[in-house]
Amino acid sequence: MGSVTTRQDTNGLEYVDVDTELCKARIFMQGAQIDNFEPKGKPPLLWVSTADDYQPGNGIRGGIPVCWPWFGMSETADWPQHGFARTRIWSLDSVQMRNQAVELIFSLPISEEDRLYWPYNTKVEMRFTLTDTLEVSLINTNLGDETVSLTQALHTYFPIGDIHKLRATGFSHAKYIEFGQGPHDQQGDDVYFDRETDRVYTQLGQVQQLHTPQGVIKVRRENSRSAVLWNPWIDKSQRLSRFNSDDYLTMVCHEAANVLEDKVTLTPHASHTLTTIISWAD
Rank of each mutant, 00 (worst) to 15 (best):
A257R: 08
G31L: 10
H211I: 14
S245N: 14
H82D: 10
E135C: 08
L249M: 10
Q208M: 13
Q186M: 09
D114C: 11
E113M: 10
L166V: 04
F243H: 11
F193C: 03
D190Q: 15
G180E: 02
D282E: 15
T202K: 06
T129W: 00
L13W: 05
Q208Y: 03
W118D: 06
T87R: 00
T197A: 10
H173K: 14
P39F: 03
W280K: 10
T6V: 13
I277T: 15
E103K: 00
V264R: 10
T212M: 04
S245C: 12
I27T: 04
T151V: 00
F128T: 00
S226T: 09
R167M: 08
S237N: 10
E146Y: 04
W118R: 01
L210I: 09
E196N: 11
R86F: 00
D9H: 09
V48Q: 07
T10K: 14
L266R: 01
G31T: 09
T131K: 05
Q81G: 08
D162Q: 03
G12T: 04
D53R: 10
L13H: 01
M126W: 02
D162E: 05
S94E: 15
L204N: 12
S3Q: 05
L134M: 01
N36W: 09
I64T: 12
L108C: 01
L260Q: 12
Y54L: 11
G41V: 08
D53I: 06
P268K: 08
E146M: 05
G72K: 06
E261F: 05
C67L: 07
E14C: 08
R242L: 11
S149W: 00
F28E: 01
V102N: 01
V228I: 15
A51W: 06
V16I: 01
W79T: 04
S224G: 11
Y248V: 05
L274R: 04
Y248Q: 08
L266A: 03
S271C: 09
Y201I: 04
S241T: 13
A270H: 09
S172M: 08
M251L: 09
N58R: 09
C253D: 03
R167A: 06
S3E: 03
S94I: 07
T50I: 08
S226Q: 04
A270M: 14
Q203G: 12
G59R: 15
Q152D: 07
Y117I: 04
R195C: 00
A25I: 07
P213N: 06
V207D: 13
N99L: 02
I277E: 13
L150I: 01
G188N: 03
M126H: 00
D35F: 06
Q238F: 12
D52C: 11
G188R: 02
T131V: 04
I139P: 01
F243L: 00
W70Q: 09
L13I: 06
A77K: 10
Q55G: 13
T50G: 09
T6I: 14
I217L: 11
L116F: 04
D190V: 15
V216G: 11
S279F: 05
F128D: 01
Y54P: 10
K40D: 10
V216I: 15
G2D: 13
D53S: 12
W233E: 08
M29E: 07
H173Y: 07
H254G: 13
H173W: 07
T20E: 12
Q181S: 14
Y248A: 03
R98Q: 11
H269I: 13
Q8P: 08
L266E: 10
